[in-house]
């Protein structure tokens, strides 16, 4: 199936729902790793919104991106409960170990901050791809992306 066909399939599948835009964007991102710019026109046409309105929504939410992330994504929690368990120092060491700074993608690895994974009694918390990791250490996280 071509990209255009897949896009129109996803758009068509959600267009009839109330408040269809977020479910649509989530599914596009699950399919392509981002919201491809090629999807903008079909979305606007299906929902009767302007390009500016669509861009406004995509830009508002942290989750939606215009380009795919690295093959591995490490999300480290920076919120208070994890800070209380030394998250800031852990993140600084992780940045040095990986050679990747928060918010960057280097090679196959994307490193980004997240504000709470709901693992506040076993911090510092992190997520590597779809795996949650409690009491995270830089060594453990670096190992996860090497595996």
């Amino acid at each position: 199936m071509s990209q255009a066909e897949r896009i129109s399939e996803i758009v068509a599948c959600h267009r009839g729902r109330e408040g269809a835009l977020l479910p649509m964007l989530h599914e596009l991102q699950a399919a392509f790793g981002c919201v491809p710019v090629e999807a903008h026109k079909p979305i606007c046409a299906a929902l009767g919104i302007t390009a500016a309105e669509l861009q406004g929504v995509i830009a508002f939410y942290e989750d939606f991106r215009a380009a795919p992330q690295g093959r591995h994504v490490i999300r480290v929690c920076r919120a208070e409960a994890c800070q209380a368990m030394g998250a800031e120092a852990m993140i600084a060491r992780l940045e040095r170990a990986l050679g990747v700074r928060l918010g960057e993608t280097v090679g196959a690895v994307t490193l980004e901050a997240v504000y709470c994974l709901g693992l506040c009694a076993c911090g510092p918390a992190a997520q590597v791809d779809d795996r949650l990791i409690a009491r995270a250490t830089p060594e453990r996280l670096a190992e996860e992306v090497r595996a």
Partner: peptide
């Protein structure tokens, strides 16, 4: 449930 330190909803 976005508040740090909360996980009861989850």
């Amino acid at each position: 449930e976005g508040d740090s330190g909360t996980f009861a909803d989850r």
